[in-house]
């Protein structure tokens, strides 16, 4: 075995042992999930709402035989799985490895099925099956379906046929059949986007750019707001000149286009800054998950304060 692999293996074993020790043999503990049983539908069944370790300890201290707050083994396993997935993805920073590949494979499988399930329950059942066969959907999954929504619409049989044609693409022969529904998707996308972008972007942005260059507020000239408006109008025009390729960018046009590039560079710089901030925020959330939810090393929201008091951790 290569020395590097031995090193990493040893590190993993030590890490796992430390986690087990902390989890099982320390008073603080770590990585446990608790739930609160909430009766639903007049007590016909119970729903398990998330609870904190502090709430559990508080309830135990008040009434040791209580059953409202309980330790949840499935959710604890889920928490450890989430921690494993988080660390497995982060392990890619050291290079491609089997842990990362497993996590990546799980992500691909789960996310593909996730969107399929959402499409099925949110769109296909109410909008397709519900339109063709409302009685079935009402008796099966949507008992609240009523009124005009519950009337059968035979025209939806066309969509059903188009759907089957689209799925035909999976068949070994006759893949061209899927072009018809694909053509519908592309046509409607083009139509929707054309209108949406003309109305929502093109016209609105032009309208918003037509600003007063001399702002008079309460009879007094506002030089700062006037300058801001002037910069916006000039900035937009300069950028548009840069996007305009029917003229060669020379002379006055070239100088204007150059100013447009500068405005665009500032825009890209701001976009870059915000993207970095967004990613770092996500990273902070993941680290907080590891340190707070899983390892119980930090407690910024005081979820385990009651536990420390009850266990004498602060004393």
């Amino acid at each position: 075995m290569r020395r590097e692999n031995v090193f990493w293996m040893a590190l993993l074993v030590i890490g796992a042992a430390a986690l087990l020790w902390r989890s099982a043999f320390t008073t603080e503990g770590m990585g446990r999930e608790y739930v609160r049983a909430v009766p639903v539908a007049n007590g016909r069944w119970t729903q398990s709402d998330p609870a904190t370790y502090g709430e559990y300890q508080g309830a135990e201290a008040a009434l040791p035989a209580q059953t409202e707050y309980q330790f949840s083994l499935p959710r604890t396993i889920g928490l450890w799985l989430a921690a494993f997935f988080t660390l497995a993805i982060f392990s890619f920073l050291f290079g491609d490895n089997p842990f990362y590949k497993v996590a990546e494979a799980v992500l691909v499988g789960v996310s593909a099925a996730y969107w399929m399930v959402i499409g099925f329950w949110d769109v296909i059942v109410p909008n397709l099956v519900g339109k063709i066969w409302p009685a079935l959907v009402r008796a099966w999954a949507m008992p609240g379906l009523s009124g005009p929504e519950a009337e059968p619409s035979p025209s939806y049989i066309v969509v059903l046929v188009l759907s089957v044609m689209l799925l035909w693409r999976l068949a070994p022969k006759g893949g061209w059949i899927a072009r018809w529904p694909l053509a519908f998707i592309i046509g409607t996308t083009a139509g929707l986007r054309l209108i949406a972008f003309l109305h929502g972007d093109f016209l609105v942005q032009i309208r918003n750019t037509i600003l007063p260059l001399a702002v008079i507020d309460g009879g007094v000239f506002d030089p700062w707001l006037s300058l801001q408006n002037l910069l916006i109008v000039v900035g937009v025009l300069c950028c548009l000149v840069y996007f305009f390729f029917s003229f060669e960018h020379q002379g006055a046009v070239g100088a204007t286009a150059k100013a447009g590039i500068w405005v665009l560079m500032i825009t890209f710089g701001a976009a870059f800054g915000y993207t970095v901030m967004g990613r770092i925020a996500l990273l902070a959330i993941r680290l907080e998950f590891l340190l707070d939810d899983w390892l119980w090393l930090i407690d910024p929201t005081g979820r385990r304060v009651a536990a420390l008091l009850a266990g004498g951790g602060l004393g």
């Binding site: 139509g191 054309l194 003309l198 900035g235 950028c239 548009l240 825009t267």
Partner: peptide, 29 residues
């Protein structure tokens, strides 16, 4: 920066994207 230069640059980009999408959509339709 956000309210002046970024607004100006983004507006120009959005106008350009809108025109591009309209042209592409018409070509497809």
């Amino acid at each position: 920066i956000m309210s002046v230069f970024n607004t100006a640059g983004n507006r120009a980009i959005m106008i350009g994207i809108a025109l591009g999408i309209v042209a592409t959509s018409l070509k497809v339709l």
